[in-house]
C-alpha cells in the first residue's frame, strides 16, 4: 500500500463531492431560469426544496474537511486541497442560494404577465454556468491558466448585467406599474451576476491551490484595467 493511501482516498472524496455539488448547483441555475421563462411555479418550488440537499452536502463536506485537518495534520498541497475544498464548497452553496432566490422570484411572479421576453437574462445564465463549469474543471485539472480565464469571462457577465440594468430602468421610467416586475427581473440578473463573481472566487482558490499564493487584485484584470462596476442600488437580493 503506498504511503497515506487512506488519506489520498479522503482527498479524492473531497474533489468528488465538489464536482457533485457543482453539478447540483449547475442544474439548479438552469432550472431556475427555465422556471422563470416557462412561468413554471411547480418547478420553482422543487428548486427551493432541492436546495436543502445542496446545503446538507456542503455542511457534510465542510465537516469532513475539518475532521481531515484535525486527524491527518495535512501540510503543503494536501493542506491547500482541504482548505480550498472548504472555500469552494462554501462558494457553491451560495451559488445554490442564488438559484433558489431566482426560483423564489419565479414563485412571486406567478401569473403576472411577462414584462418583456427574456433574452439577456438566459444569456447571463449560460455565461455564469459556463464559468462555474470551467472553474470546477480548472480545479480538478489543477489548471491555473484556465482559472485565470474565468476571471476574464466575468467581465462579460458584468457587462450584460449593466445592459439589463439600464434596460429595466427604462421600463421603470416608462411606466411606474412596471417597477415591481422590473425589480424582480433585476434581482434575477443580480443573482446571476453574483454567481459569476462566486465562480471567479473559485478560480482564485484554484490559483491558490496550484501555486500556493493568492493572486493580488491588480493581477486580476491585467488586460482590462479596472473591473467594471455597474453596482446599481437595487436593494438586497432575495435568498
Amino acid at each position: 500500500m503506498p504511503p497515506r493511501a487512506l488519506f489520498d482516498t479522503q482527498l479524492k472524496h473531497v474533489q468528488d463531492e465538489l464536482i457533485l455539488i457543482g453539478s447540483m448547483v449547475e442544474k439548479a441555475i438552469r432550472r431556475s431560469i427555465e422556471s422563470l421563462r416557462a412561468r413554471d411555479v411547480e418547478l420553482a418550488r422543487r428548486i427551493v426544496e432541492d436546495d436543502d440537499d445542496i446545503d446538507e452536502r456542503y455542511l457534510a463536506l465542510r465537516e469532513f474537511c475539518i475532521d481531515s485537518i484535525a486527524t491527518q495534520q495535512p501540510a503543503a498541497g494536501d493542506l491547500r486541497t482541504l482548505v480550498t475544498g472548504m472555500h469552494v464548497a462554501a462558494e457553491l452553496e451560495r451559488m445554490g442560494d442564488y438559484a433558489e432566490g431566482i426560483a423564489k422570484i419565479s414563485i412571486r411572479m406567478g401569473g403576472e404577465p411577462p414584462l418583456k421576453p427574456l433574452i439577456d437574462i438566459p444569456r447571463m445564465a449560460e455565461l455564469a454556468i459556463g464559468m462555474l463549469h470551467r472553474s470546477l474543471t480548472s480545479l480538478t485539472e489543477k489548471d491555473d491558466r484556465m482559472a485565470r480565464q474565468v476571471w476574464h469571462d466575468d467581465d462579460e457577465v458584468d457587462q450584460l448585467y449593466d445592459q439589463v440594468f439600464r434596460e429595466l430602468l427604462t421600463f421603470m421610467f416608462q411606466n411606474p406599474r412596471n417597477i415591481q416586475r422590473a425589480t424582480w427581473l433585476l434581482w434575477v440578473a443580480h443573482n446571476l451576476e453574483r454567481i459569476g463573481d462566486r465562480a471567479t472566487n473559485i478560480a482564485e482558490q484554484v490559483i491558490y491551490l496550484t501555486t500556493g499564493r493568492t493572486p493580488a487584485r491588480d493581477e486580476r484584470w491585467p488586460d482590462v484595467g479596472e473591473p467594471p462596476t455597474p453596482a446599481p442600488a437595487n436593494g438586497p437580493a432575495p435568498r
Partner: peptide, 20 residues
Amino acid sequence: KLFTSPADERTEAYITGRFG
C-alpha cells in the same frame, strides 16, 4: 511557506508523509 507551498517536490513528499 515551507509548510504550505514548498518549492521542491522532495520537501512536499516528506512533509505530506509520502516520502519513499
